[in-house]
Design a protein around this nucleic acid. Structure first.
Lengths: 340, 340
DNA sequence: AGAGGTTACGCAAACGGTTTCGTGTTAATA
DNA sequence: TATTAACACGAAACCGTTTGCGTAACCTCT
């Protein structure tokens, strides 16, 4: 077993001091040609690589970024993560992922674990429970310690930090307008409980589109589903008791479920019923009929979040004039077979 | 901005030595009651938390584990990751994820980045390119340095380390037998290029099942698809030119594609054609008809991999008698609508 | 009162680097 | 020949902890 070699080993072997070795490896002008060559050759031979931890301690910079997301078995979050990882890696950063599992407590614990020096900054999307409780103290503590934070998708106005979101309201507005243009008269919204900020924005778009078109709003056309533990009957009841010919769903799963259950009831899609979902995931592309959906461009979102974070991390501490940005990514409607 | 407080700050403020503070916080018998209380109160007040990096340097243990996987936007890998993260977190470990993107070079670079002290051990699944090249030097270097390594799913016999796999051959055998029991006469196999070990094992099961049933093997019934960049025509040609009534696909996507394109050609599923896939992902559950599939129990796989790794990491270095285990997880066939 | 034992704390090394500053040697200059 | 600058290198501090060991002060017992 060849244990990792350190500066000390090289120094002893070559009978020079540790500082000489360190400088020689950095090609410092201070060190003579011969010594440099000798040291560098030796280091290469033994495949010397400086210890990241030691460097982190010295520099007070870990080159790690912490990502805390509610779920990892989830198409949207993984695409965002891919973007983060891609950009971060390019900049020489590694990514530590923690999954909050939609739990407030886990989110807090994860952040505390990471905030004690393990990472240079956070990229996060709030857990369902955090959004519900509206308790953001753990985030505020972190930012007060001077640790940069970038929030994406599930954000909150109460937290002052950089953010990346999509134009939820506008794109929902567009989606509903598409349904209106198709001639749909009874357009439903299938959404989550109120505490998800994105769902609310999408609902706003839905409402605005209908009112702008001079339609009456009808509460019976809005179905709120729990985030976890959905049962078929919840949707079936809705479909059975409601007269509708178009649905906007705030996520992909809702859309797929609606489509399946509507098909089961004999609806032809898109002839009798148009369906539009959010999240351009794998389901949307491979279900039958394929699903018209809002692409959130998660990968781009991740890249931008990572860029914002790393910029913050690397900007000299003073120049952080506490002026935070919110980057808005333009989502796009991808038309497929579930609409006309 | 409240910067993180250190032992040194506490020591100065309380006019004691750093070591006294350290010991007091650990409730050492060496320190007097009064001092301990004073220090602990002060530490709590200022929310002192020891710096992870400093501790890592001291202990030569980071409490981080490195996960290198080919892809993150991929159901199976994310479920495995979830298992890893779950177990690791419970044991106080954090997880650094690097995505090799099926590239050998990225795999090597990622491992090198992490191997310089950032992590205590690796959990990996080999990239496509690595399997193709059969070049495992980066893995051997890591293990020679004494860094524990656990391979899952995409493993290789050439690497000596702990492994977690599923009983691919047996479960493929079972799956094909199910098709035989259904009375299928022309059972096809849709697989990947040869260099994926799991595909080969699954192919073995396919072949064994057919030969055990006294069937003649027919090369025409085997379709090899590229791993990326699949075009519809590749499958359509196969379906058009081959007489078949049953298909075993080595992954979920292949199964979904076969199903879609067969349906398009007028096949009724499962009446005319039975399809079984691998990976019990979201597609299998929500496509129409739902897909009979082999559940690989990724989460369990991840948990076991993490457990094996952490056991290794925490066992005293000497007792590693170089006796590696390969844990085999029993995959199970989940029957749905795509088979009778 | 002196020996011996506690008690309660501090010193310093160590982990593996980086970096500032000091210094001995040599060669160039006056 | 004495002065000095350039060169090449080493000592030591530092990042934040942990921990073995030394020791001053006090106590107890004879």
């Amino acid at each position: 077993m060849k244990k990792k070699i350190t500066l000390k080993h090289i120094a002893k072997e070559l009978e020079v001091s540790i500082s000489t070795v360190s400088k020689a490896l950095k090609n410092s002008e201070e060190i003579g040609r011969d010594t440099k060559e000798k040291v560098q050759a030796f280091a290469k031979l033994y495949n010397y690589k400086p210890n990241n931890i030691a460097i982190s301690l010295k520099n007070k910079r870990t080159k790690n970024i912490g990502v805390v997301i509610p779920d990892i078995v989830h198409h949207f979050f993984t695409t965002v993560f891919r973007g983060i990882e891609k950009y971060a890696n390019k900049q020489g950063y590694n990514v530590i992922v923690c999954v909050s599992d939609e739990s407030f407590d886990k989110e807090v614990i994860n952040m505390e674990m990471l905030a004690n020096g393990s990472i240079d900054g956070f990229i996060m999307s709030l857990s369902a429970e955090t959004q519900q409780k509206q308790d953001f103290n753990h985030l505020k503590e972190v930012t007060e310690q001077g640790i940069p934070l970038v929030l994406f998708d599930r954000v909150s106005d109460e937290i002052e930090c950089d953010k990346v979101v999509i134009n939820d309201t506008e794109v929902a507005y567009q989606a509903v307008n598409k349904l209106i243009d198709e001639g749909r008269k009874k357009i439903a919204l299938v959404t989550t409980e109120h505490y998800f900020n994105v769902s609310n924005h999408r609902a706003d778009g839905y409402i605005r589109a209908l009112t702008d078109a001079g339609r009456k709003l009808d509460d019976k056309l809005i179905l709120k589903l729990p985030y976890k533990g959905i049962e078929d009957y919840m949707i079936e009841d809705f479909i059975n008791t409601t007269d509708l010919d178009g649905i906007l769903c705030v996520n992909e799963l809702f859309a797929i479920l609606c489509m399946r259950l509507a098909q089961k009831k004999g609806f032809r899609i898109p002839e009798d019923l148009s369906i539009i979902g959010f999240t351009n995931g794998i389901l949307s592309r491979y279900c039958t009929p394929t699903l018209t959906t809002v692409a959130q461009h998660g990968e781009k979102m991740g890249e931008i979040a990572a860029q914002m974070l790393i910029d913050r991390v690397e900007s000299e501490i003073d120049e952080q004039e506490e002026t935070y940005r919110t980057e808005i990514i333009e989502a796009t409607l991808i038309e497929r077979e579930s609409t006309k």
